[in-house]
Design a protein around this nucleic acid. Structure first.
Lengths: 223, 223, 223, 223
DNA sequence: CATGAATGAGACTTCATTCAT
DNA sequence: AATGAATGAAGTCTCATTCAT
């Protein structure tokens, strides 16, 4: 109802790319890139086959757009949180991870993880983009917090990379699970979704990070 | 049943299905099921296109065979270990997880995780098989150990499922990573492969599980 | 019919069909009818795709218009020349052919020859039009001159049709060449364009036509 | 019934490329490259759509093969004739041109002229091939004969290139005509096909070339 | 009149599968 | 049992044409 209300035709036009990207993400995650027909994407977006090609040069181009579009949005979110926070490293990690989690798990971004894992070997440029734009920034951010925790004596002097991975990999795995096995409707037993797990998981690893005294020799006696 | 080897030609013939399964696993993991051509599988297995169809009714049938064949083998391995073991729950988990890990990570079985994640939604019967034959047995096994650890006072009374997932999800995620992003040759920085991580990760979570005294209020954390 | 020019905008509008016809001729000759997109024609004419369809019912209709429009103009030109001429048949042929040549070779009409050759078999009505409106009038005109030359003892009693074809076919072929192989920019060696050839070619055939004795000085003084 | 009679299947296979090339030449000349569907070619060759692609990578590749295949064959034919000939330049030209003519006009090679003219601007590599493999050899051959005729006083000192073109262009034009306008079945009036024309045309131009005195009678007596 | 977003028939090309050899 | 030529359904992409603005 704004005064600059564009015509319906024009409004449709501006919304098309996003509608197509959304439909494509859904279908690519659901069936895989190669098994999704371009026309399916178009139909789910409410347009015809030809219209898809007004906005994307090829199906492959659409895939790239889906990934970059959905990842670019969420990238900088965490950094702001961290900068504005004051408190213990534990608390900061808990906040950052859980907040991130809720944003990502319940948004298209979560699906992108599965998409990247599924398609990256056929489109190597995706790998580059994903590592530079997602993996490295996130790893750097979390690694910094862990590092700080260690420096301040809050955490034991563990391997920073290991700690970050122990914290983060289950989060990603659950996103992936949600969009693969978890979407097969095999009952709720192994649902393992839900934010409940994340909170407890983070707590569990933080417990492992914090405790100073009771320590086993950390040896890794080979078999 | 004779001890003498069959002729090379005969041995070759009997090995065909296995060679086709191996080639199919490699290619399905590398390019995805839909993007892999039946002839590619045949060629990599050293036979012709037609031969593939002497052993498998269809490409889809080949996919099912790849998954069931590679998973069925590894299923019972762990149970034996556990039964024969006496020691602390921590020690048992460490041994079981690390031993499993080495077997799976460096074998075709690791690739199957990626394959299952990638293809389940197009072939729901895979989900059923995977959950019944892999997820449930493994979860039951590990959950039992954790349960025992709690009952014996070795572990704090955590949620068993959470603990199992915290322990196991990174292992699976690393398998998946190895066959997706990790296979893109993007430098060694984010390699995160290697058994080193697993040992430290398991230790870290076990630390979180064991510690009795120094505890934060664990619960709470309002949304 | 007023002597005052219409407004630029109005003139533009009235010129649209001609601009579209010109653009279409260029492109149809350059790429062929089937390989030329309607939008390309529109763009080269400086209008939008939709506008093309305001003036022509279909792409095929446009092709017909291109041909009839460009051929109709040049048809009657020669007849007038002939009627007003007094002199030998040789001289008349030389004048008519060379004059025609310069008009046609350096005008869109030359391109139409290639277009007709290229597209007739897909649009048989073009054949009818072309034969009735171009081939027959021209053949009749030239044949008449040759006939007169024979009757007057200036030419030997050759087959009139043969003589006409020997005179004319190279002219057409050079038009066609200019718009096919000659437009590929393959160097100037086999350019064979240029009015020089035509003059000498006509002279050569006229030499063959003329009675043995009555030979002219074979001058080919270029302009 | 030779002893090395291959199986029917195999015999088919070896004949396929030629059958496809023949069908393609017919259709490309008839309808143009762009307007011919790949499946039409396949059907006319008696195979299915897919089979075409077992022998040619693409429709474009098929076009190139059609042209090179049909032109390469006829290239060297003339040179042999010339080498083996002794007699006047006039006689040699008459023999070479008329013999060539019969070979080319009544063979697929004649159709290729129209095809080249029609498609060359969309596939510039055709131009290169055609000029190097057809135009230049043929022009060189005929130019040599004319040159010799002039040197021996048989011909007047005309421009060699002009003479060659005057002789040859009508032949090519008639080939082109046969496969364009001539194929539209517009009655026999303007048929202008037939070897009759060629003989008379060559004679007419040769008459123009010969020294004034030395007219038709095979006599000579140069000045 | 003019535009250009939208459509969908249709063309090229691929590939799972069959079957004669 | 093994092959690989052949098929044709199906998928990607194009483009002539329409029509709301």
């Amino acid at each position: 109802m704004s005064t600059t209300d564009p015509s319906p035709r024009r409004r449709r036009k501006e919304a098309r790319p996003q509608e197509l990207l959304d439909a494509a993400l859904e279908l690519f995650v659901e069936k895989g890139f190669a098994a999704t027909r371009a026309e399916e994407v178009a139909v789910r977006a409410g347009v015809s086959k030809g219209t898809l090609y007004l906005y994307f040069q090829s199906k492959e181009d659409l895939l790239r757009a889906v990934i970059t579009h959905n990842l670019s949005e969420r990238i900088a979110e965490g950094a702001a949180q961290v900068a504005a926070f004051s408190g213990s490293a534990s608390e900061l990690l808990r906040v950052v991870l859980c907040e991130w989690w809720e944003h990502i798990y319940n948004s298209p971004a979560g699906a992108v993880f599965k998409l990247v894992i599924t398609e990256v070997r056929n489109f190597p440029e995706i790998s580059e983009f994903y590592i530079h734009e997602v993996v490295e920034p996130a790893h750097h951010l979390l690694g910094g917090i862990v590092q700080r925790g260690i420096a301040q004596g809050e955490f034991r002097p563990v391997d920073v990379d290991v700690a970050v991975h122990s914290l983060v990999l289950p989060l990603i795995m659950i996103c992936v699970h949600k969009h693969s096995i978890g979407a097969c409707g095999m009952g709720e037993q192994h649902s393992l979704d839900g934010n409940a797990f994340i909170r407890q998981h983070v707590q569990l690893v933080l417990d492992g990070l914090c405790q100073p005294a009771t320590r086993q020799p950390t040896d890794d006696t080979p078999p």
